[in-house]
Design a binder for these strands. Structure first.
Lengths: 319, 319
DNA sequence: CTGAAAGCGCTTACAG
DNA sequence: CTGAAAGCGCTTACAG
C-alpha cells in the first residue's frame, strides 16, 4: 500500500539501488536520473520505511527520556530543553512515562534493550528498582545518562544540581530568617536527597546549630521544636507542609521557616519565611546532552556525578 | 555484538526458525526444545531487534503524541492519561515535542509518514500550519486523533471539551458575580477558542447582555468599560491579566471579574471575582484512546468533534 | 554512472 | 515437530 523504493524504480525504469542512491544524494548518480527519481518520488509521495533503514544502519537516530511523570519542573523542563537541543543535533527525543510504576519501568528498560533508541536519559523514581534490565544494558555499554538523581550508581553517569552547596545555601537563608534549629526531611534513598542531607548537615555542624533528621513526617521530638524558630528543609513544599500539619500545635506560637527546591506549590500562610533554591534545569539538560552526544560518538565519559550549580536562591516570604 | 536469533540457533543446534517459534510461544515446538531455547536465550540475554520485527510485521505497537510543549495541563494531563491507558493496551506512547515551531512540527509529521508509529495524537499549536504532510497522512488513512483543538478539520477527528456549554456556564458564573457586560478574548483561529466564543456570545445575546469581542488585548472601548462591573472571558489567566494591565485605569473604581479555563496562574489581587472551568482531561484522553484503538482495529470512526463535558466549575474568588 | 547480489534480523507459509 | 526458503524494505560493497 505504501510506496516503496521498488515502485519508484519501476516507474523510472532503473534499478532500485540507483533509486536508493539518488534519494540519499549520492554524487555518483547522474544529474538527470537523479532529478527524474527525486521528482517521481515526490510525486508518488514516497516516504522511506525507517524500520528497514534502521535495520541496516543498526541505529535509530532516536533517544529516549524515561520519566516517572510530568508533574514537576524536574520532569517538564529537562524534557523540553533536551528535546530542543537534540533535534538540533539530528536526534528525535521520545519522552516515555512509567508512572512511578516499577513494572512499567522495567518493561521500558527492556524496550531499550531491543534497539528502539540509540541511548536514553533516565529520571529514576525515588525508590530503587531492582531492575535486572540494567545489567543487560550495562553489559552492552548502552549509553545511559541519569538526570537529577540516581538510585544505583555503580558506573553510571548522573547530571544533577550541586545539591550539597544548594542545601548549605538554604541553611544560610533560613538562618538569616531567624531559624535556630533545623528539621531535615531530605530522602536518603536517592543521590540528590542524600547529597542535600550531607550538605545541610555539614553546614549546620560547622555553625553548631542543632538539627533533627527525620525519615517520616509523623515522627518528631516535641521538646526540640518547642521554643525558638524552626527551619524545615525538604525537597518539596508538600513534604514541608505535611510535616507542619502533623505537628501544627507545636508551631502555634512560632511559625517555622521552610527551605525547599524549585517551586512552592501549597499555601504559604503557615510559614513565617519561605526560601527556594531554583535548579538550573537548562544547564542540567545541556550537560546531559553533551555527555550523551559524546558517548554516541564513541568517546568515553567518566562515570560519576556531574554537578551543575543551582540557578538562584529566592525568598518567597520573609519573617 | 548484540545476540541474534542465529546465535541461539547455533548454541542449541536447531534452525533459526525453530528458535523464532519457541520464543514466540508457538505451540508447535516441542516442550523440550522450547525450554532449552528459552533458557539459552535468557542466559545469552537475547533481546529481539524490534526494527527487524517491525519490518516484517509492518507495525510498531507504538503511538505518538505530538505536543507543542509541556507547560500547561492541557499538554501534561492527556500525556499521562494516554500513556497509562495505552500501555495497558500493549502500546508504547512516545511524547514528542515540537516547541511551537512550525518547522519542527512538519518534520515530525513527516516522521509519522515513515512508519515510526501506528498512529498519532496531535495537540496542534494555536496557529494553523500549512503542512502538506497532512495530505500524505490523510491519503494513507493514517490514524490521527486531534486533542483539544484543531486548526484544519476537514475530515479529521478531534476530542475536546464541550466548549460552547462551558463558556455559557462561565458567563452565568460571572453574572452571578455581578458582571453587567463582557469582554471576550477567546481566539478564533482554533476550534476550541471558536466554540467558546460562540457559546459565550449565544448565552449573552439570550440574556441581552452587551459584550465586546476583541482580537488584541491592547484595543478596547473605554466608554464601554467605564461603569458597572466587567467580566473578562479568556482561555488563560495570562490573557485576562494582560488585558487588565493594558486598561488598568479604567478598572480602578470597579475591579472586573474573570472567567477562564483550567488554572489561574497569576496574581489574583486585581480581580473581584475569578471563575474557573476545569476541563476533564482524563475523559478527553479516554475518548481519544478509544477512538484510536478502534481505528487501529480497522473500524471506521466518524470524523468531527467529540465533546466531553467540563469536569467542574469553581469559584476561586468571589466579590 | 548503474545494476546484480548479498545482507541487516526477523517471521511465516510451505514441505516433510 | 522442525527445517529450508522466501520475504519485509532498505543499503552498500562489488563488478562492470
Amino acid at each position: 500500500m505504501a510506496i516503496r523504493l521498488n515502485d519508484i524504480a519501476q516507474a523510472c525504469e532503473v534499478d532500485i539501488s540507483t533509486v536508493s542512491r539518488a534519494l540519499r544524494n549520492d554524487p555518483r548518480v547522474r544529474e538527470n536520473t537523479r532529478e527524474l527519481i527525486r521528482q517521481t518520488a515526490a510525486k508518488m509521495r514516497y516516504a522511506p520505511n525507517l524500520a528497514a533503514r534502521n535495520l541496516v544502519a543498526g541505529t535509530t537516530k532516536t533517544l529516549w527520556l524515561l520519566s516517572p511523570d510530568l508533574k514537576n519542573q524536574i520532569e517538564q523542563e529537562p524534557a523540553q530543553f533536551l528535546s530542543e537541543r537534540l533535534s538540533r543535533e539530528g536526534y528525535d527525543l521520545m519522552i516515555v512515562l512509567y508512572h512511578n510504576d516499577p513494572a512499567a519501568f522495567r518493561r521500558l528498560l527492556m524496550r531499550l534493550t531491543q534497539h528502539v533508541a540509540d541511548g536514553a536519559f533516565i529520571i529514576p523514581a525515588g525508590i530503587a528498582y531492582d531492575a535486572s534490565e540494567y545489567a543487560s544494558l550495562k553489559k552492552n555499554k548502552y549509553p545511559l545518562v541519569f538526570i537529577d538523581r540516581n538510585v544505583e550508581l555503580k558506573g553510571g553517569v548522573t547530571v544533577t544540581t550541586d545539591n550539597g552547596a544548594a542545601a548549605a545555601e538554604l541553611v544560610a537563608k533560613c538562618i538569616e530568617g531567624g531559624a535556630d534549629k533545623f528539621v531535615i526531611l531530605f530522602e536518603k534513598n536517592n543521590s540528590a536527597g542524600y547529597e542535600r542531607l550531607q550538605g545541610a548537615e555539614k553546614a549546620l555542624s560547622r555553625k553548631k546549630i542543632p538539627c533533627l533528621i527525620l525519615n517520616r513526617p509523623e515522627k518528631t521530638d516535641a521538646s526540640f521544636l518547642k521554643s525558638g524558630r524552626t527551619a524545615i528543609l525538604s525537597s518539596t513544599s508538600t513534604a514541608a507542609c505535611v510535616f507542619y500539619e502533623h505537628h501544627k500545635q507545636l508551631f502555634s506560637a512560632n511559625p517555622p521557616v521552610a527551605g525547599i527546591f524549585d517551586q512552592w506549590r501549597d499555601r504559604t500562610e503557615s510559614f513565617a519565611g519561605i526560601y527556594l533554591c531554583r535548579q538550573d534545569f537548562r544547564g542540567i539538560a545541556e550537560k546531559a546532552a553533551d555527555i550523551m552526544l559524546e558517548r554516541l560518538k564513541g568517546e568515553k565519559t567518566e562515570s560519576g556525578l556531574y554537578h551543575i550549580p543551582a540557578q538562584e536562591f529566592i525568598s518567597l516570604k520573609q519573617p
